[in-house]
């Protein structure tokens, strides 16, 4: 019983991080119809910036804010410099259809090399701002620490802010309209181009939060968020790639599911298990839990 509770707690904490990454991927997918594999690169760049601030000032809150702003800016820069140019030059041909995917892959490599040149490829210790020792209730210590609490609260705050923006504000309405029917949204006076950039900005910020919250558990390297990208992608696919709620549910499902597999079967199976989950979702319910049938035409 205790083991199951432990697995659940670890799963929830990880699941929130996966949800954030999935949110970032979904936001970009909705606005531009691109799976942004560079999201891992953008997130790790923001994390390195936060790391730099925290080592200089020893102030985690400042570092967090700085990292998230950097993430948002990087998102905007990528959309304006790379994606707009890409869609301007888009032409027929076997590669043209894949061009955004390949460009995002190239960008991932580029960001990593730049990080490697500036900070080096070796592991950097990202010290946690709060204790990582699990809470103790009476005799038992659960694997859920203040850091995990911070992760859950931080991720939940981001999700609440996004929900408020998307459901209550005019900007949110424009974002939803531009994602749903770009041509009609444009006719209705929505500046679709700018709205796209805002989608990328939100995604960049969400990815940055995910990177900064997950990294204090471990050291950071230019490659340390690769696996998070995969988990985020699988979570987004579980949720249907279109739906923000789906991304959160998908992330939590994947986090808890993987945590149980880790606890009861063994750590060696984490990637094969992820892959099997992805394959099952794609084969049984390709439109995801929250997607409509028509959504998967791309």
């Amino acid at each position: 019983m205790q083991q199951a509770i432990n697995a659940l707690l670890i799963g929830i904490s990880n699941g929130f991080i996966y949800s954030l990454m999935a949110l970032a991927l979904v936001l970009v997918w909705r606005s531009t119809r691109v799976i942004n594999f560079a999201q891992a690169g953008q997130a790790i760049l923001s994390t390195y910036i936060a790391f730099e601030i925290v080592t200089r000032t020893d102030n985690f809150i400042l570092a967090f804010i700085g990292g998230v702003i950097a993430g948002a800016l990087v998102g905007a820069v990528v959309e304006i410099l790379l994606m707009r140019t890409l869609f301007k030059h888009v032409s027929d041909g076997p590669v043209a259809a894949l061009a955004p995917v390949i460009a995002s892959l190239g960008l991932l490599g580029l960001i990593r090399s730049i990080i490697g040149m500036v900070w080096g490829n070796d592991q950097k210790p990202f010290f946690p701002p709060v204790s990582t020792n699990g809470f103790t209730f009476g005799e038992t210590t659960v694997p859920f620490s203040r850091m995990n609490l911070l992760i859950v609260l931080g991720a939940a705050t981001v999700m609440i802010i996004f929900t408020l923006i998307f459901q209550k504000s005019n900007l949110g309405l424009a974002l939803r309209a531009a994602a749903f029917q770009p041509e009609i949204a444009r006719l209705a006076g929505v500046r679709v181009g700018e709205i796209r950039t805002i989608g990328w900005i939100f995604a960049g910020a969400a990815g940055a939060v995910a990177g900064i919250l997950i990294s204090p558990n471990d050291a950071i390297t230019p490659y340390s968020l690769d696996s998070l990208l995969i988990f985020g992608f699988v979570a987004a696919v579980i949720g249907g790639l279109e739906s923000l709620t789906g991304a959160v549910v998908g992330g939590l499902t994947l986090g808890i599911g993987l945590s149980f597999i880790l606890t009861y079967i063994g750590t060696s199976l984490i990637f094969p298990a992820t892959f099997v989950v992805l394959a099952l979702v794609l084969l049984i319910r390709p439109q995801g839990l929250f997607g409509s049938k028509a959504a998967r035409n791309a």
Binding site: V95, G106, G109, L110, G120, N121
Partner: peptide, 25 residues
């Protein structure tokens, strides 16, 4: 060390991005 180990990746990704942007096929 930082430059030597990362320059090949930098050149390769830049080439990849430029090719996709300007001569996608």
């Amino acid at each position: 060390e930082r430059v030597t180990s990362n320059l090949p990746g930098l050149i390769m990704s830049t080439l990849l991005i430029l090719t996709v942007l300007f001569t996608p096929n």
